[in-house]
Write a protein that binds this DNA or RNA. Sequence first.
DNA 1: CTCGTTATGCACCGATGAGTGCACTTTAGC
DNA 2: GCTAAAGTGCACTCATCGGTGCATAACGAG
Lengths: 212, 212
Amino acid sequence: MGAARPDGARGRIDKRQAILDGAFTIFARDGYHTAGMDAIAAEAKVAKHTLYNHFGDKENLFREVVAALSDQALARNLAAVEQLREQGDLAAMLTETGRCLAECYCDERSSALRRLLHSEITTMPDLLDIVRDRASDRVNDALAARLARLALAGRLDLGGDPAIAAEQFGALLTGSLEARSRLGTRKIPQAELRAVAGQAAATFLRAFGTES
Amino acid sequence: MGAARPDGARGRIDKRQAILDGAFTIFARDGYHTAGMDAIAAEAKVAKHTLYNHFGDKENLFREVVAALSDQALARNLAAVEQLREQGDLAAMLTETGRCLAECYCDERSSALRRLLHSEITTMPDLLDIVRDRASDRVNDALAARLARLALAGRLDLGGDPAIAAEQFGALLTGSLEARSRLGTRKIPQAELRAVAGQAAATFLRAFGTES
DNA sequence: CTCGTTATGCACCGATGAGTGCACTTTAGC
DNA sequence: GCTAAAGTGCACTCATCGGTGCATAACGAG
């Protein structure tokens, strides 16, 4: 890193982060198998040896990339769920939360993560646990908790388990989005995103709402 | 194929089918990239040259496999949807249709098809069109038509477009199933399958039912 | 200044896998 | 039975790619 390091890479420690970023870019673009370690090294502006010094081998690097991505996704998803409060226009809040969740779901990084997950799930089944433990499960729990509080406040009548209602709200969103985004290939315009969220919220409220 | 061909392979034409079957087995087990043409030839009990005579190259073979699988999936899914008639216990019918659709969705072949689709969608975007044209869209249309007839008979009150209601019923099923089956990794027991279908039908009827 | 750590560049190995060439055998149709 | 098409087996090419070795350069700490 010669003279005054004009761009990034200030110290030793952020080599690691540069590698993770570059690796994700290449993995996302080419898929796990097609992505080459040379390409990753080039993208991260790092010698190939440095990859192996930091991460051992390709598979491990991939795992770490998945973990890092899960953490990023968690933060964004939780922020969306936290918008659900006990007072305010329920339909509007649900729609807005849904829209944010939908945006997270359609984010390029999330789409790529799902694609990579699907393609390697048979050879590395533990990947799913990484993602679940770090993101999916926590988001679901958070959503279930919010819904439960709304039920307690008399604003929802979840038939039984709040976890199932949360799962179904998520399903209404993601099921539609997966189809409409062509598995993450097509960018869904904001307006359509809002429409999907609105329809999910409407159906959810028709099923579980107490006011109408 | 010496003497009296004790097992399969009676004529010339079913070499093609043998290859498609074998190729799918290997693709499903190993994924597109890891699957080797030698392994496919061995699985299909066919010389490697025969693969290339019939299908030209690996990518084209893959496409044909995907198309064949889509056709199979379509048949099973349509059979499930056709159980939805205008008379009879609505909740029971919806649950049963949902259960059959869920079974199709969780079928090993369908799970593998989805995995392969996800992993190669970036390099072969036309794969999705193959599957949509041959299966997904048709199933959705058929379901929407059935729901529309139920609405016309006064047994459902779909807010607006029947296609959206159909999409949402599908989403309630597949969204839950994708999570619970660990992306097709875990085999979901019959009882749980029925429970998921029942919950989807219940929520759908709470939202769109006219009887309650 | 010096020493140990970390990064770099480059050549290299070994394995794997798609696709081909060729000589040979089997089968279907006339 | 004969011929042309289709299938077989095997060796082979060519390219790619994960991972390593080595000699060298930059850097941080004492």
